[in-house]
Design a protein around this nucleic acid. Structure first.
Lengths: 341, 341
DNA sequence: GTGAGGCCCTAATACGTATAAGGACCTAAG
DNA sequence: CTTAGGTCCTTATACGTATTAGGGCCTCAC
């Protein structure tokens, strides 16, 4: 008798039938009028045999398992320390703890090339969980559409408006936060502002969203932004920085933390003083990073937590299937915005 | 007809029986001698109806659900970046990907005080997975004993010899690595060596294991170690370091990365040159840390991966239930061991 | 003493899958 | 003509769960 005890085993041990066990287990004993004595027998047997409901059986039947799936379109734990997913996971786990749910990290969906696919492995593994939180930088709209069409409950982290599909998501309020940045620069007296963007496709979606929000907002507030300078962080040269410092541009908006790190090093080397010679603001600096530069930050932890709450709301049917949640960014902090020189 | 197609639907569409569909799907058509024409009909219907196998049904049938539990006696994702668990998780995930398994992080087992307990919630939630990998700094021997007695398959990460229970574990070969350190110090010409240990209970088990291994090994190799200096990293003062540098002691073995960081800062302040004035070796420096100090490192990634492999071996019955695995540490690297001044 | 109604439980079933056992049909050998 | 053997498929079953329908037994009222 090596196999895990099932409801039938409990029933046998308690001298009653399997459905009764199920009823007691699910707290519907009163509703069905099960004698207290019987309930005790059942619970005692469960404890004694170490019963735990079977995931497969439950989800086959259509019930809940207390499992929240987490699917990422790339590896969950990249090697580097500045990990895109980590903070999201922290938030997800925190809320899961609070709500008494466990998490399933889908590792089995990874293909040989390192990307992950919901349907790639031939089966939709996500179904083992009650619902899933999905995150990823790649655009995999077709898989999401299919998932939505199957009626599987999920929440995407990040803005993801897909035509023709109701996909609930939790996104950061970039626009609001960037308005705050623009306001701060403007009221410090800046008019010509440079924009340093990340070249390449690494996190293209979010980057472009920031960029657009910035340019729209700057225009409305009377700022004159330079055309965006796009480069990889290794490509940031002293010559470029000297040129900026010598130009009319008095402040720099930086799109990504890699560029901020590179800029910090270059500025130090070139003797460009921040913020005396050049004001600097970074959009989305991770918590562990860089000097105390002015920045806003995507509230990853908070977004993770909200995603869990939203998913549970979905599962309980308390929330419509096309609900979006926009989470305010962490407010602008730091001290590298000064009046122009 | 909103629901996803099942094998029965395929069968109906192709005008045959459900088991035939299953047989074709699993590539056993030849074995069962299914006519090519029938196979084509089946495959065509699958494509047309968009069939995707149902995991729940499968794992219900197979007895396994492809879920590997990960239980930690503390939070999985602490807030700090120098995260004790992170590297283990990386290894676990890597191997899980390779073996096509998914991971369950047990968040529901957390008690209000932040600690986690296997049996705290009344039932052993771990049972939901096929088996589990358990890690944690606290000693919770009683829960492990109970788990072992219940016959639940698990692997502990870290040395954990519990009298009267077969608990498989994966541990680092501290002794071997520390012998390497002692050998290096000795052959560089050192005889008097200091030992800087971490005070407090934070990671007591592993720390003490290192300490004992060092003192035993040093004795055998003819080194004269000072009595260990135990302190919290904040308590490391310039005065202490000056005293060491002025004494007969020519090398320092450091137990934990926090102390290494603190020592680096203090040495810089005090003008103590490493390794010219003092040789330094750290036991277990995380990958992302500090100057290029000489150190050995606990092979966390590797240990995580081995734990997964060991657990699957256990599940397949290919491995006895009392198997221990000792993983060699990453070899000594760095350049802060020099001849004594 | 018959019916109503409450109490407490069981039998039957369905979900999707995989496999063992079995059966129908045909061909070829004796 | 019978039988052995091959080919190709089906029937039956089991896995663990939750729910619907139903049934036995007791008590009380008429």
């Amino acid at each position: 008798m090596r196999r895990r005890p099932s409801q039938r085993d409990i029933a046998r041990a308690a001298g009653i039938s399997q459905p009764t066990v199920s009823i007691v287990l699910n707290g519907r004993a009163d509703e069905y009028g099960i004698a207290l004595e019987t309930q005790d027998k059942v619970r005692e047997a469960m404890r004694r045999l170490g019963y735990v409901p079977d995931v497969a059986g439950r989800s086959l039947r259509g019930g809940r398992n207390g499992l929240i799936g987490v699917h990422t379109f790339e590896r969950v734990f990249p090697v580097g320390p500045d990990d895109y997913y980590h903070e999201f996971l922290v938030g997800i786990e925190e809320k899961a703890v609070e709500m008494g749910q466990d998490l399933v990290l889908f590792a089995s969906t990874q293909r040989p090339d390192g990307t992950r696919s919901i349907y790639g492995a031939g089966t939709n593994r996500l179904r083992l969980a009650d619902g899933a939180i999905i995150l990823g930088l790649e655009r995999n709209d077709d898989e999401l559409v299919r998932l939505a069409r199957e009626g599987f409950p999920f929440v995407f982290i990040g803005r993801r408006d897909i035509p023709g599909a109701h996909t609930p998501y939790v996104a950061a309020d970039y626009a609001g936060a960037i308005a705050e940045v623009v306001e701060a620069l403007s009221s410090a007296g800046h008019t010509r502002v440079g924009y340093l963007g990340l070249d390449g496709t690494l996190r293209r979606g979010p980057q472009e969203e920031r960029r657009e929000a910035f340019y729209q907002c700057a225009g409305r507030r009377g700022l004159e932004p330079d055309r965006p300078a796009l480069m990889a962080s290794e490509a940031l040269t002293g010559a470029w920085l000297r040129e900026v410092a010598a130009s009319e541009t008095t402040a720099l908006v930086i799109e990504a933390f890699e560029l901020a790190d590179a800029l910090a090093a270059t500025a130090l080397r070139e003797g460009v003083r921040v913020p005396d010679d050049l004001s600097v603001v970074c959009l989305d600096l991770p918590p562990v990073s860089s000097p105390g530069w002015s920045h806003i930050a995507v509230p990853r932890r908070d977004m993770g937590a909200r995603a869990v709450a939203l998913l549970l709301g979905l599962l309980d049917g308390e929330v419509p299937a096309d609900r979006h949640e926009i989470v305010p960014c962490d407010p602008l902090t730091g001290d590298t915005i000064a009046p122009p020189r």
